[in-house]
Simulated scan of single mutants.
Amino acid sequence: MKPPVLLAAVLLLPASVASAAAPLSHGPQPAGFEIPTAAGGMGAAVEVGAAVEVGAAAEIRAAEVEPVAAEPSWQWPLTPRPQVLRDFDPPSKPWLSGHRGVDLEAVSDGVQVTSPAAGTVSFVGVVVDRPVITIDHGNGLRSSFEPVESTLAAGSPVAAGQAIGTIVAGHCPASSCVHWGVRRGDDYVNPLQFVMDLRPSILLPLTP
């Protein structure tokens, strides 16, 4: 076939066939990237999209990591600093049994319990068979103490260190104690993280 005839044959090809033979853009492209063609080839563009998806998934996984313990900024609710008789041991499922707070040893029954942080009394009353007082500290945090009798009423503001009631017998069989629970929203969290530094230790490099 002579050259003029060949040129005419190319010009008479359907547009879809002609466009499939060449990229949509003729300019220089970044390394590792290929402009999609009309024939449907995505080339390296698929790889770039996959990289974006992987990065987004990594960010989501990082956001789902459970936050570390808070920096301690509250006061102990008993004086002197009490011994922890029973630690925080929440159940694996909300409906299972467990220990959703800590038991703190008191010198004797009748000692005062103080508010670990400023807040507002949100509940005072009897739950099942024991007196309970709950303090709303804001930011979704609430402290509950039992068995504690109080003369305060719901809505009363309290300052950090202010007496909120007295311990009565009945919780710990072998000694006087108070059960302290803390909730963040609807979830129980370890009260000790607010009075002790439970954050993981970080090793720093030695300096000369």
Score class of each variant (00 low, 15 high):
V68G: 13
L24W: 09
V52A: 13
A62R: 15
A117Y: 07
V132T: 13
L12Y: 02
V102H: 12
V17K: 04
V65S: 11
P90N: 11
A51V: 03
L85E: 04
E47F: 05
I35L: 03
V65C: 06
E59S: 08
G110H: 07
A9I: 07
K93H: 15
A18R: 15
K2Y: 01
L85G: 09
P23T: 05
V46T: 13
G119S: 09
R86N: 04
V48P: 00
L85K: 02
V68Y: 05
P23K: 05
R130C: 07
V128T: 12
Q112E: 15
D109F: 10
A69D: 15
H137W: 10
G41L: 06
V111R: 04
D87N: 14
Q75A: 12
P14N: 06
A51N: 07
S73E: 15
V68I: 10
R100M: 03
E59R: 12
A51G: 13
M42R: 13
V128C: 02
P72F: 13
A20S: 11
A44K: 08
D87C: 06
P90I: 07
L6N: 08
A22V: 14
S97N: 07
G27V: 06
V102N: 09
V46Q: 05
S73F: 14
L24K: 05
P77A: 04
A9G: 04
Q75M: 12
